[in-house]
């Protein structure tokens, strides 16, 4: 599970950006998976904008839900 690479996709032009979760189709957003959730978090521990992370809309919504759940249980911080 840990071998999947999540790039920020910012080097590619807008048309060639691919969602990291759509490309690895076995991957799903889970609130217990702190390691991957941390990739989509800002330096101030805010949820990254979809423009910078290159995630599709569906997965961005799932991500936001997962991060909020992880915050509620104390796996991720609310602020820095």
């Amino acid at each position: 599970m840990a071998k999947y690479v999540f790039s920020t996709n910012q080097k590619h032009p807008l048309g060639k950006r691919r969602c990291a979760f759509c490309t690895n189709q076995t991957m799903e957003v889970d609130y217990k998976d702190v390691k991957t959730l941390k990739i989509f978090i800002n330096g101030f521990k805010k949820i990254k904008n979809r423009y910078y992370s290159g995630v599709c809309l569906q997965h961005q919504k799932k991500l936001a839900r997962g991060i909020k759940r992880a915050r509620h249980v104390g796996l991720l911080p609310f602020t820095n």
């Binding site: 915050r71 104390g74 796996l75 991720l76 911080p77 609310f78």
Partner: peptide, 11 residues
């Protein structure tokens, strides 16, 4: 814990 919950640092 990532932040204090009910004055506890661990859980």
């Amino acid at each position: 814990l990532a932040y204090r919950i009910k004055q506890f640092e661990e859980g």
